[in-house]
Each structure stands twice: as C-alpha cells, then as structure tokens.
C-alpha cells in the first residue's frame, strides 16, 4: 500500500480584493499541514494574503470531450455583450 501523503491543490489570493487563483499543488498529511506547506512553498516571494487548499481528489471537473456541448452554445449569444448594441454618441457614456 502506498503511504504517499495526499495531493492538495493550492489557491492563493495575491492581493486584497482579488479572487483566489490556482497556483499549484503539493503533498501534505492533512489540511492543516497543507496550508502550512502552501505558505512555505508558494508564498516565498510575498505572493499572497490568503490561502485555500483542497484535496485534489475532491475536485470535480468537466470532461474535455464535452467541450462542444458545454461551451460552444454560448458563442452564438452575441447579444449578451455590450458591444452588440450601437448607441449614438450623443447619448453619452453608458
């Protein structure tokens, strides 16, 4: 049986006001140590103000094969973007 420490994914908030971003992964025996390891591994250059970790096996993801049905339908909804609408300059900023 493998005694390898579980794999954790690390998310760091780089600055106040920004979202947490995935920065990488690491191994740790539990969540507490994963956070400490993330602090030591991924914030050596003052990169963060907040850390999230989640065990990699708990992440659910889309399957690459479903890319078409999942993401292409939104391509045709051009009217969702502000540039779709021509508004006369006289109206001012909108």
């Amino acid at each position: 049986m493998s005694n390898e420490w579980p794999l954790w994914e690390v998310f760091i908030r780089g600055q106040h006001g920004l979202s947490h971003r995935h920065v990488g992964s690491l191994h740790a025996p539990d969540a507490d140590m994963a956070i400490k390891n993330a602090r030591d591994v991924y914030t050596r250059r003052n990169e963060g103000v907040s850390i999230w970790v989640v065990e990699a096996r708990h992440i659910a993801a889309t399957a690459p094969g479903e890319k078409g049905p999942l993401f292409e339908p939104s391509e045709s909804k051009v009217y969702r973007h502000p540039t779709f609408f021509d508004i006369p300059d006289e109206v001012g900023h909108m």
């Binding site: 493998s2 390898e4 990488g24 992964s25 591994v41 050596r44």
Partner: peptide, 19 residues
C-alpha cells in the same frame, strides 16, 4: 527544491505519482 516540487506536480497530472 521548490522547482522540483512544481515539476513533480506537473508529472503527477499525467497520472504518475511523485513517490
């Protein structure tokens, strides 16, 4: 050591464990 860790992580995404 950090760079080794990042690279092992990249290899792990291919289904090979670090150990």
């Amino acid at each position: 050591a950090g760079h080794g860790l990042y690279l092992y992580s990249a290899a792990e995404t291919l289904g090979e464990s670090r150990d």
